[in-house]
């Protein structure tokens, strides 16, 4: 069918559009020239930008801060976001539900400059009123990141729970389990995959954030994206290419491994169910 042909061509071009820039970044990270995009045939490929990167103290410090911020924010976001997801998926109608659901979906699309500005003004006002949080730094970045990443966790958890029949929890209660037991033995194991992907999502978004961090970070706390942003505003820089390549590599490896694993799991499940059905006939 010609429509299938058309959309498939579109798909190939679209994927090329998505990947060529990343590819070019990777290629030029091995380029010897400072000019980045002019390939120095005589001395390339080289690993010198990787070496330079690994001895660049400000970048390493910023990366370490970013890792700590992202891990804390993702953990906080998972706790709060999971609660929201469960409340929205399982608690039925209650007063204030609409507001909760609005406050959960709005951050998904809210322009970052607005989130950043409003959170900074909150922190300033809080400091004036109650003296906490004193100044701005890692703590304020984490608080801000939890706030706008918990929505992603909530959405992931909510849609996972929507895929399960609520009678599972009812059955557990019917069998004598108290609500706390129901949560830890039934609900939580069911949503573990959503919690894991929610954590990774929150980590990535926090790790990546530059705009909100710029508003709420103090002078002493510079995250990796903030360092990169100030570097690349001045133009291309070969060590940023090396950094980008490393990050792409780590992410790609992680995703490939996890999806291969998930693929194997679903294959196994499929085979088992087929065996079971065959055995019954």
């Amino acid at each position: 069918m010609n429509r299938g042909y058309f959309s498939r061509t579109g798909l190939v071009i679209g994927l090329a559009f998505l990947y060529l820039p990343i590819l070019s970044m990777v290629v030029f990270s091995f380029n010897n020239s400072r000019l980045v995009t002019v390939w120095d045939v005589a001395h390339s490929p080289t690993l010198k930008w990787y070496v330079a990167l690994l001895s660049n103290q400000p970048i390493l410090r910023a990366a370490w801060l970013s890792i700590r911020v992202a891990a804390s924010a993702a953990t906080g976001a998972v706790v709060l976001g999971t609660l929201v997801g469960i409340v929205l998926a399982r608690f039925g109608p209650f007063r204030g539900r609409t507001l909760l659901s609005a406050m959960t979906t709005a951050p998904l699309v809210m322009p970052e400059v607005i989130t950043g500005l409003s959170l900074l003004l909150l922190f300033v006002a809080l400091e004036q009123l109650i003296g906490w949080p004193r100044g701005r730094g890692m703590l304020t970045i984490i608080l801000a990141h939890i706030t706008f990443t918990m929505s992603y966790v909530a959405v992931v958890v909510q849609s996972r729970l929507a895929g399960f029949d609520e009678s599972l929890e009812e059955a557990a209660m019917d069998l004598g389990a108290r609500p706390v037991t129901v949560f830890f033995r039934i609900t939580l194991p069911l949503i573990v995959p959503a919690i894991v992907s929610g954590w990774l999502l929150a980590f990535t978004i926090s790790w990546d954030d530059v705009v909100v961090s710029q508003f709420v970070a103090g002078p002493a706390s510079t995250t990796l994206p903030m360092v990169i942003f100030s570097k690349v505003r001045l133009g291309v820089s070969p060590d940023v290419n090396a950094l980008a390549t490393l990050m792409v590599l780590i992410v790609a490896l992680g995703i490939v491994i996890s999806s291969l694993w998930m693929h194997a799991m679903s294959k196994r499940r499929e085979r088992e169910s087929q065996l079971a059905i065959a055995a019954n006939q």
Partner: peptide, 8 residues
């Protein structure tokens, strides 16, 4: 339960 609600 109608759906049996077996814990998966």
């Amino acid at each position: 339960f109608q759906s049996y609600a077996l814990f998966p």
